[in-house]
């Protein structure tokens, strides 16, 4: 019963964090800041979902597979984020910095 509640809590919280990350994708002004919003959905949101499902599965092969998915996401997601950021920087995309006005973000459309 406690496990059931805990897993329910994890799943709902994970879903909420995912939606928040999706909102962040639209609220942040430029590509580099949006990467941070993706960071939320890739780390805590995914972890909460998989932990919540592992509570449902108990100690079975299913939870081992969930752990593997968790590990793969945690190893690949920073690499993908870094590659994206690095490619954007080498491609000449200028980040909005705090000294600039955050509101006028139209000029970064294309270098």
């Amino acid at each position: 019963m406690i496990l059931e509640t805990l897993s329910w809590l994890c799943l709902v919280l994970g879903g909420l964090l995912g939606v928040i990350g999706g909102i962040g994708m639209h609220r942040f002004p430029d590509f580099y800041t949006r990467l941070h919003a993706i960071g939320i959905t890739d780390t805590l949101c995914a972890a909460l979902f998989l932990i919540g499902l592992a509570f449902q599965a108990g100690l079975t092969i299913a939870s081992f597979k969930l752990f593997l998915i968790f590990a793969f996401i945690f190893f690949t997601s920073p690499t993908a984020s870094h590659l994206l950021a690095n490619a954007a920087m080498l491609g000449g995309l200028k980040p909005v910095l705090s000294d600039d006005d955050v509101a006028n973000s139209e000029q970064l459309d294309k270098p």
Binding site: Y32, T33, L35, H36, A37, G39, I40, T43, L44, F74, S77, P78, T79, S81, H82, A85, N86, M89, P95
Partner: peptide, 24 residues
């Protein structure tokens, strides 16, 4: 990778002597 994994900071470039980081 830890810098990238924590939301709010992303590693832009990694070389032998310095790490360039974008912070939110």
């Amino acid at each position: 990778n830890s810098i990238t994994l924590t939301p709010g900071t992303v590693t832009l470039e990694l070389s032998n002597d310095k790490i360039i980081v974008h912070a939110l």
